[in-house]
Design a protein around this nucleic acid. Structure first.
Length: 321
RNA sequence: GUCGAGGUGGCGGAGCGGACAAUCGCACCAGACUGUAAAUCUGGCGGCCGAAAGACCUACGUAGGUUCGAAUCCUACCCUCGACA
């Protein structure tokens, strides 16, 4: 069975660095599972591990008619950066199509695919698949539903798909985005749903990286300042000048959306930095909540002395088996 | 020093005699998640007991007072801010 290594966990734990190290050791290539690093020109704020002046290389693979680029970092190929323009929408389905293709290509070349990132849903889509992933967005439906209250949406869903509506938890019942998506899925009809195979087609090893909260938050705070020094403000200026709008999906990324208040002179840099840090802390928490549920993940506390040796032992043992 | 505004939970900020342990936002804690996922959404959030209902305690600058009852009214004092000196 095809082996796939997954390196996941909350932000600011050093996933990419670790994955690069492992890739060198066991001849792997990285596939970034990160919903923001897909955007071109958003480098500093999304934390792409790019050495200065490193240029992307063009592969012979295509995605939506365009050649897929990759970066060669420490002689390891890294895929998943710079997939689309930041003026575009992006979603799991697109990611899945891209990742499946790259994964196959890595395997074909006899290398080990290493999926690395903090976007749990993206990892899930590749490793476990998502049954309704092929139901496309229905713009006009979404538009017509946009102003409805959650109760109206819920009632609508109940009418079309009572089983689905009854199965929703109290949180999702009040989540307009999910309700609209659920309606979108029913209205697409049965052809949109496919049953998933119970058994994964991969032999997957999950490595999860953690840090005690105070260290993690400290890392995050330092990283915020680092990114400011690296020039995220200039990066945003450049994006705006090139036609990216604050309302674009890409710009609602942490770091960017907080800086908006500063750009519009509504907040001081200090206030913005505080918000930015808070947003990162909250994000890390959400990631932890997501990943915690996955029993397959082998967790390693990065602040512990022997974590590297223990983890590498585990990976090597799995790799050779 | 005088005049004016104000002092409320970790912070911002409502409340201005009973329905107030105190709207709401932030932070914080916990959770959800199947095409926006760095998104979106849910619950909790003074203390103590409790599964819960609920009880009790301590709280709206400090000290008194009025009242059956005060974060809300009165008095004095302390502090902050603005204006005038």
């Amino acid at each position: 069975m095809q082996k796939v290594l997954v390196v996941c966990g909350p932000t600011a734990t050093g996933k990419t660095k670790l994955a690069l190290r492992l890739a060198k050791k066991i001849n792997g290539e990285l596939i970034s599972a990160d919903s923001r690093q897909v955007y071109r020109g958003m480098d500093i704020g999304t934390g792409k591990e790019l050495p200065v002046n490193l240029k992307p290389q063009i592969s012979n693979l295509k995605y939506r008619g365009e050649p897929i680029v990759f970066y060669s970092i420490l002689r390891v190929k890294v895929w998943g950066y710079d997939l689309v323009s930041p003026t575009r929408q992006f979603n799991v389905a697109q990611y899945k199509r891209f990742a499946d293709k790259i994964l196959k290509s890595i395997v074909d070349r006899g290398k080990l695919p290493i999926i690395v990132g903090g976007t749990g849903l993206y990892i899930k889509a590749v490793v476990d698949d998502i049954s309704t992933i092929n139901v496309p967005a229905n713009r006009s439906l979404r538009r017509s539903l946009a102003n409805k209250s959650v109760d109206e949406l819920y009632n609508l869903l109940s009418r079309f798909d009572p089983i689905k509506s009854a199965s929703l938890n109290t949180s999702d019942r009040k989540n307009p985005r999910r309700l609209i998506r659920a309606i979108e899925v029913v209205s697409y009809g049965e052809k949109g749903r496919r049953s998933l195979k119970k058994d994964s087609k991969f032999d997957t090893l999950f490595i999860g990286l953690t840090l005690p909260k105070h260290i993690r938050n400290d890392n995050i705070n330092k990283r915020v300042h680092k990114r400011l020094h690296q020039g995220i403000i200039a990066e945003i200026k450049k994006l705006l000048n090139s036609g990216v709008k604050w309302s674009d999906q890409s710009m609602c990324s942490i770091g960017y959306k907080e800086l908006r208040g500063y750009f519009e002179s509504k907040l001081t840099l200090e206030e913005v930095v505080k918000k930015w840090k808070d947003a990162e802390h909250n994000y890390a928490k959400r990631q932890i909540t997501w990943f915690k549920r996955d029993q397959r993940i082998n967790w390693f506390d990065v602040s512990k002395k022997d974590y590297l040796r223990n983890m590498e032992n585990m990976v090597e043992k799995w790799y050779k088996s």
